[in-house]
Design a protein around this nucleic acid. Structure first.
Length: 270
DNA sequence: CGGCCGACCTGCGGGC
DNA sequence: TGCCCGCAGGTCGGCC
């Protein structure tokens, strides 16, 4: 579930609830994707100073170091002022002054990693070498066009890779390519400037709309307060194989690209 | 290095 | 009704 909009919805929800609180204890459940990279006791007494986001990672800044949180495929963060007992899929708790910040992640593709600083080897490994933030001023049509021109893979796979622009996952890449009228299988370096310009706007539009909708809740994604997002009800192509295109009525096609489903309209996207 | 593929893990829905 | 298979929002690491 968690692409950029879901992670950003989580960040906006969680930040005002936890900044200023001090970590009193840490509870670990089953192992996540990577070990925490420190003994849990090292976190106690640290105060949370800010919550940022880079790509699909949340950066929980502490007065010393930071926690890097990834939601994987099935993760969600929730703040409880009166926490229930942890369930079988609750794998990480930060016990704070006035409640508990809890990571719920059935598939355990998510991770919480402690870092000294953004210069730490793990930070470079996880955050290095990526593209620009799609909702920042760094993401210009020229940056996108140049990125497209440098790659011979399909435009869909290039966007999913995050090497040009980050945060766009399988749902939003399908939606953005539909909005831009571009066939997902099209080779990136064969997309012209006019289409690239449309794609640039489409990426920003679809992410913005998803943010307003509180993200997509395909299974169980929820914001920090437990509220589900509803963007999934507005998708034009994602998850609509065989259903009529909302523009032209042609049944939506689905193909596999890099072992993932790609949805598109063979009439509207060329 | 670019590109492709398997791996990680659990749950759920569809088909038989 | 019940079982088995395929698929699911991500991305790392190994291979060519």
């Amino acid at each position: 579930m968690p692409e950029l909009p879901e992670v950003e919805v989580t960040r906006r929800g969680v930040e005002p609830l936890i900044v200023g609180q001090t970590i009193r204890a840490v509870r670990l459940g089953k192992p996540l994707r990577w070990p925490l990279q420190c003994v849990p006791e090292a976190l106690t007494g640290r105060r949370i100073t800010a919550v940022d986001r880079r790509a699909k990672y949340l950066l929980v800044h502490l007065d010393t170091g930071m926690l890097l949180v990834h939601l994987g495929m099935s993760g969600s963060l929730r703040f409880w002022s009166e926490p229930p007992d942890p369930g079988v899929h609750d794998h990480f708790d930060l016990l704070l002054d006035h409640g508990v910040l809890r990571l719920h992640d059935p598939r355990r593709f998510g991770a919480v990693v402690w870092l000294d600083s953004l210069e730490a080897p793990w930070a470079r490994k996880l955050l290095g070498g990526w593209g620009v933030e799609p909702l920042s001023a760094d993401f210009t049509p020229a940056v996108l066009l140049q990125g497209l021109r440098n790659s011979r893979t399909s435009v869909k796979e290039l966007l999913l890779s995050g090497s040009v622009v980050v945060g766009v996952g399988n749902i939003y890449v399908c939606e953005a390519l539909f909005m831009a009228g571009i066939r997902p299988t099209r080779r990136a370096d064969r997309i012209g400037a006019a289409k690239a310009l449309r794609l640039h706007s489409a990426i920003q539009d679809v992410l913005q709309k998803a943010l307003v909708a509180g993200g997509s809740s395909l299974r169980d994604f929820a914001g920090v307060d437990g509220a589900a997002g509803h963007f999934q009800t507005q998708t034009q192509v994602y998850g609509r194989a065989g259903a009529p295109c909302r523009i032209c009525g042609t049944p939506i096609s689905v193909v596999r690209q890099a072992q993932r489903s790609t949805y598109f309209c063979r009439c509207c996207q060329r």
